[in-house]
Design a protein around this nucleic acid. Structure first.
Lengths: 104, 104
DNA sequence: TGAACACATGAACATTTGCTCATGTGTTCA
DNA sequence: TGAACACATGAGCAAATGTTCATGTGTTCA
């Protein structure tokens, strides 16, 4: 891995912070199944509209999701082909950890 | 992506939290270049021994690094083949983001 | 135009997090 | 054995974070 300047390092940390919250993970996983508007997401995740909206705004700032307006609704979708890959790698890590524990 | 129970979701979030701090990222990147003991890491990263040790302990609990004793020293190394892949994907995301900004 | 809907956003609060400081544990070697 | 070294760890504190509550903005349609 090549060297990284401080700015890129902070950007990188900020990116992973987005994945470091179970609410945001659930939003990202939900969106990996397809586009959704805010109220649907809120209902699906059993959260308030406000909380979902705040998190979507955070995810959008981090360029993990994009949105478009459709009438009164805002439709959100994943905006990065890496999102699903990164989550899948994380899941692999966890499942291998569980596997290793059984071996011991 | 398949469905995830609550416990796995929290584990996943906790995993990504580990990557969500520039200090820990720097430790992981440093270790991707090879094993190191604690004092070397502290000097290399210009941090106190205590701060590095705390973070290493966090990383070890998350199974991203392992350690072995060598005399008085503790040698730390990456303990997961996914670590470098995950960081590399994060870097890709950021660099593509920068690229997209230039297009606009 | 104005009411109703869908969503965004600012402020406030409780929780979490990362660091420092002080001290504890484990190892080596004279 | 005990001093010196290398590292771990608990407590405490300031900063960051996620949620709620209240309210603001944008859109539709009668």
């Amino acid at each position: 891995m090549r060297m990284h300047d401080d700015e890129e390092l902070y950007d990188l940390a900020d990116l992973f912070k987005l994945f470091g919250d179970s609410t945001r993970l659930r939003i990202l996983i939900a969106l990996s199944e397809g586009e959704r508007n805010v109220n649907d997401l809120a209902e699906y995740l059993a959260m308030t509209q406000s909380a979902v909206s705040h998190q979507l705004s955070t995810l959008k700032a981090g360029k993990l999701v994009r949105s478009r307006r459709e009438g009164k609704q805002m439709i959100y979708a994943l905006d990065d082909e890496h999102v699903e890959t990164i989550i899948a790698l994380g899941i692999e890590h966890i499942e291998e950890g569980e596997h290793r524990e059984k071996e011991i």
